[in-house]
Simulated assay, not measured.
Amino acid sequence: MPNIIERKDHPLSMRLPSADIAMIDRAASLRGRSRTDFVRDAAVREAENVIMEAMPIRMSAEGFRTFMDALAQPGRPVPEMVEAMRRPAPWETESDGD
């Protein structure tokens, strides 16, 4: 009896304008990825975002009060963010090549 190997990959076919393909290929190249890997990752990431947006957040009444109390507290500075905001942006500094 021959061994039957169940295929785990499922093909997905799309028709796209050449301008879209060129954009995808350029972006994939910038990331060092194949078109297939780039499109798969982008599609899965967006699917996860849509699913997460649709999922309700459930918590107990006590948990909700704790959450709301935390939001009501004044913000605290994050030292790394304060330091980053004090640095001049690259376009605000003089370049040595001029």
Rank of each mutant, 00 (worst) to 15 (best):
R15I: 06
R15F: 04
L16T: 09
L16G: 07
P17F: 05
P17I: 01
P17L: 08
P17Q: 10
P17V: 04
P17K: 12
P17R: 08
S18C: 09
S18M: 10
S18Y: 04
S18W: 07
A19P: 00
A19F: 04
A19L: 08
A19G: 07
A19V: 10
D20T: 14
D20K: 10
D20C: 10
D20G: 01
I21A: 07
I21H: 06
I21F: 01
A22E: 13
A22P: 01
A22S: 06
A22T: 05
M23A: 14
M23H: 09
I24K: 01
I24T: 02
I24M: 06
I24P: 02
D25E: 15
R26V: 03
R26Y: 03
R26C: 05
R26L: 10
A27H: 06
A27L: 14
A27M: 13
A27S: 13
A27C: 11
A27F: 01
A28C: 09
A28L: 00
A28E: 03
A28D: 01
A28Q: 03
A28T: 02
S29E: 06
S29G: 14
L30K: 06
L30A: 08
L30G: 12
R31C: 05
R31M: 05
G32S: 04
R33W: 02
S34D: 09
S34R: 13
S34Y: 03
S34H: 05
R35H: 05
R35T: 01
T36N: 15
D37N: 07
D37L: 00
F38Q: 02
F38P: 02
F38R: 02
V39Q: 03
V39S: 00
V39W: 00
R40Q: 13
R40E: 10
R40F: 00
R40C: 08
R40I: 08
D41M: 08
D41N: 12
D41W: 01
A42M: 08
A42Y: 01
A42P: 00
A42S: 08
A43M: 15
A43C: 14
V44D: 11
V44K: 13
V44I: 15
V44R: 14
V44F: 09
V44Q: 11
V44A: 11
R45P: 00
R45A: 14
E46F: 07
E46W: 12
A47R: 15
N49Y: 07
N49C: 11
V50A: 12
V50S: 09
I51W: 06
I51N: 04
I51A: 12
M52K: 11
M52I: 04
M52G: 06
M52V: 03
M52F: 07
E53L: 12
E53N: 10
A54I: 00
A54D: 10
M55D: 02
P56M: 04
P56I: 02
P56C: 01
I57F: 06
R58D: 05
R58F: 02
M59Y: 04
M59E: 05
S60T: 15
A61D: 13
A61N: 12
E62M: 06
E62K: 06
G63E: 14
G63D: 10
F64D: 05
F64H: 12
R65T: 08
T66Y: 03
T66I: 12
T66K: 13
T66R: 15
F67W: 13
M68N: 11
M68Q: 14
M68A: 15
M68G: 02
M68F: 04
D69Q: 15
